Structures are given as C-alpha cells and as structure tokens.
Amino acid sequence: MAIDRIWSYPPQAGRVEGLDLTGFTVVAYDGTIGHVDREADHFGMRHLVVDTGVWVFGKSVLIPVGVVTGIEPGERRVAVGCSRGEIKAAPRFRIDSETMDPEYLRRVGDYYHRLPPRETTTA
C-alpha cells in the first residue's frame, strides 16, 4: 500500500459518502477498541479519532482511514485491519491540536503503513 493511500478509505471498506461515523464502535481483528469520537481530514490526511474509554487509560487514538476494512452502518460498527496492541503502540495521541500537526500525522501514517498486511475483514 502506498503511504498516501493510508489516508483514504479502501474501496472495499464500504464507505458511504456523507455517513457520519461518530459513535460507531471500532473493532480490531482481536477485539473492540472504542468508539469514533470524530472523523477529520486535515492536509488530505483523513483519520478517525477514537475514544478508547478505559482500554488505553481513557485516552483517544488516531487511526488513518486507510486501515478501515469494513463499515457496517446497520450495526454502527467500523472494522480495522490491525490488532489492539498495534493501535496501542502507535504514536501517542496527546492533544486535539495534534490533528492539525502535519508532522505528527506523517508519523502516524508511516507507522500504520509499515504494519504487516492482514486479510481483509468486514465489520
């Protein structure tokens, strides 16, 4: 996958333009991560900010939309092609202003781009 593609929904993800993913449950291949707090697109780097609740000490994580493997609107669920541990090991998301920091976003994109590919799953 080209690094710039990490910021775009894959065609097979089932993205419906205009669908608000806020509140959707986010599921890794090995369990639930949290809920979409918001979707953002700064500098052409589209991503989800996911509230992890108590899973990562009440923190949020930033996930590029290129790792989304499936969206199930009826179930209000988003599947991602990585593990909970891989998400937890991603560059730490500390403050909301980081979504406006192109260097931070590049680090996040590079991290997810380098993850080993997984079989495509659906939500």
Results as ranks from 00 to 15, higher is better:
residue 79 A to D: 13
residue 77 R to N: 02
residue 89 A to G: 06
residue 77 R to L: 06
residue 78 V to D: 04
residue 68 V to K: 04
residue 67 V to W: 01
residue 72 E to W: 12
residue 67 V to E: 03
residue 73 P to Q: 04
residue 63 I to S: 01
residue 69 T to H: 15
residue 83 S to E: 03
residue 87 I to Q: 00
residue 74 G to Y: 10
residue 100 M to Y: 15
residue 65 V to F: 05
residue 66 G to N: 15
residue 80 V to W: 08
residue 97 S to M: 07
residue 66 G to W: 06
residue 70 G to H: 04
residue 97 S to T: 09
residue 66 G to Q: 08
residue 84 R to S: 02
residue 60 S to F: 09
residue 81 G to E: 07
residue 82 C to G: 01
residue 98 E to D: 09
residue 89 A to I: 04
residue 92 R to L: 14
residue 83 S to H: 04
residue 77 R to I: 05
residue 85 G to Y: 02
residue 88 K to E: 10
residue 63 I to L: 09
residue 79 A to E: 13
residue 85 G to I: 03
residue 68 V to Q: 06
residue 95 I to V: 08
residue 85 G to D: 05
residue 100 M to K: 14
residue 71 I to K: 09
residue 80 V to R: 09
residue 79 A to P: 05
residue 80 V to S: 06
residue 84 R to D: 02
residue 66 G to E: 03
residue 86 E to I: 00
residue 68 V to P: 13
residue 75 E to D: 06
residue 70 G to T: 09
residue 92 R to G: 03
residue 96 D to A: 15
residue 80 V to D: 07
residue 89 A to F: 08
residue 85 G to M: 05
residue 87 I to S: 03
residue 72 E to P: 03
residue 60 S to P: 08
residue 63 I to T: 11
residue 95 I to W: 12
residue 68 V to A: 02
residue 64 P to H: 11
residue 61 V to L: 06
residue 80 V to N: 09
residue 64 P to Y: 05
residue 62 L to P: 02
residue 87 I to C: 02
residue 67 V to P: 04
residue 75 E to R: 15
residue 100 M to P: 01
residue 85 G to H: 02
residue 80 V to I: 15
residue 93 F to N: 08
residue 72 E to R: 14
residue 84 R to G: 01
residue 60 S to A: 13
residue 85 G to S: 06
residue 96 D to L: 14
residue 74 G to N: 14
residue 90 A to G: 01
residue 60 S to Y: 09
residue 93 F to E: 07
residue 64 P to D: 11
residue 80 V to C: 02
residue 77 R to Q: 06
residue 62 L to T: 11
residue 78 V to W: 00
residue 81 G to A: 13
residue 63 I to K: 01
residue 85 G to A: 10
residue 81 G to C: 04
residue 63 I to C: 02
residue 96 D to K: 12
residue 80 V to G: 05
residue 88 K to Q: 08
residue 95 I to G: 11
residue 60 S to R: 14
residue 99 T to P: 10
residue 86 E to T: 00
residue 96 D to W: 12
residue 75 E to C: 10
residue 78 V to E: 02
residue 100 M to A: 11
residue 73 P to I: 03
residue 79 A to V: 07
residue 62 L to D: 06
residue 99 T to W: 15
residue 77 R to F: 03
residue 62 L to Q: 07
residue 90 A to F: 00
residue 93 F to Q: 10
residue 100 M to E: 14
residue 93 F to Y: 15
residue 82 C to M: 00
residue 61 V to I: 07
residue 100 M to N: 12
residue 89 A to K: 09
residue 64 P to T: 04
residue 79 A to S: 11
residue 97 S to H: 12
residue 81 G to I: 00
residue 88 K to H: 11
residue 92 R to I: 11
residue 93 F to K: 14
residue 83 S to K: 03
residue 72 E to Q: 14
residue 68 V to M: 10
residue 65 V to L: 06
residue 71 I to S: 11
residue 68 V to W: 05
residue 83 S to W: 00
residue 90 A to Y: 02
residue 61 V to P: 10
residue 98 E to K: 10
residue 65 V to Q: 06
residue 99 T to C: 12
residue 100 M to D: 12
residue 92 R to C: 11
residue 71 I to N: 13
residue 89 A to P: 04
residue 87 I to P: 01
residue 87 I to H: 00
residue 96 D to I: 15
residue 90 A to S: 06
residue 70 G to L: 08
